[in-house]
């Protein structure tokens, strides 16, 4: 009798640990990974100096931009270089967006019809800058593997939820196993074709955070085209004056 009881508890214990090992834990890991990605570049506030290099089959340019953000609602960007664009600024509050053009001294509100257009000729759209893009809320995820997997990397497959205004069939995320910092994101259409790829490189420490300082966005279906963003300086969770996110500030400088 005693023997049976011990075997039974052993058995129950085994089942229990098996359960823990397979089902839930993996999902939580995926969620954890995604959460980290979402919050990587976000904070209650931020201020950064970055370089955007745009390469197209017809031309190449590098812009130097100073950017401020507050939460997910407000963003302000000012172009410092090159000379032709110096002083141009973009303000985003909620769903609305304005551009300032120093040459003509004009503030133009971007109509929704132009929101899907590219921001300043890059591969990022106005929409990209505006949308409250969260992987966490908009997708379902599962851990997965890929061909030619790197050692020390983890892979997550994100499938958009049904009613979310997202065009992708699914997104693959690759992160470092130890600190969950992103290695790349690949965006696929519903037929499984790779449409867009974002590479994360050169991890640097900015204040308390370690983040990839270089993001390379490569549209796979257009030849010879990509946009590279390099963070030169960045400060997170600092106090920012509210005046920054105002139409008046667009004209200042």
């Amino acid at each position: 009798m005693k023997r049976a009881l011990i075997t039974m508890s052993y058995f129950i214990f085994l089942c229990f640990s098996l359960m823990l090992a397979t089902g839930e834990p993996d999902e939580t890991q995926a969620q954890r990974i995604v959460k980290k990605i979402d919050e990587l570049y976000r904070s209650t506030s931020s201020k950064a100096l970055m370089e955007m290099e745009i390469i197209t089959p017809h031309w190449q340019r590098t812009l130097e931009i100073r950017a401020w953000s507050e939460g997910m609602e407000k963003t302000f960007m000012r172009i410092l270089e090159p000379k032709k664009e110096r002083g141009m600024a973009t303000l985003r509050i909620g769903n609305e967006m304005w551009n300032y053009l120093p040459k003509t001294n004009k503030v133009i509100k971007i109509p929704p019809s132009m929101m899907m257009g590219s921001w300043m000729g890059s591969d990022f759209t106005n929409d990209d800058l505006v949308k409250e893009f969260t992987f966490f809320n908009d997708y379902d995820f599962e851990m997965t593997t890929v061909n030619q997997a790197q050692t020390g990397a983890l892979y997550v497959k994100c499938i958009p939820k049904e009613n979310v205004p997202v065009v992708w069939g699914y997104v693959l995320l690759a992160v470092r196993a130890d600190d969950y910092l992103p290695l790349w994101e690949k965006f696929y259409d519903e037929e499984g074709e790779l449409v867009r790829e974002m590479l994360f490189k050169e991890i640097k420490r900015f204040g308390q955070r370690a983040i990839p300082s270089v993001m390379e966005l490569i549209p796979r279906q257009k030849q010879g085209q990509k946009t590279i963003i390099r963070y030169l300086e960045a400060q997170f969770d600092i106090a920012l004056s509210q005046d920054i996110f105002s139409l008046r500030n667009l004209r200042a400088e």
Partner: peptide, 16 residues
């Protein structure tokens, strides 16, 4: 069966 996203401006407010 494939996904597309429509973007438009609301009446009056012009919100996205």
């Amino acid at each position: 069966g494939e996904r597309v996203v429509l973007t438009l401006a609301q009446a009056e407010s012009g919100d996205l």
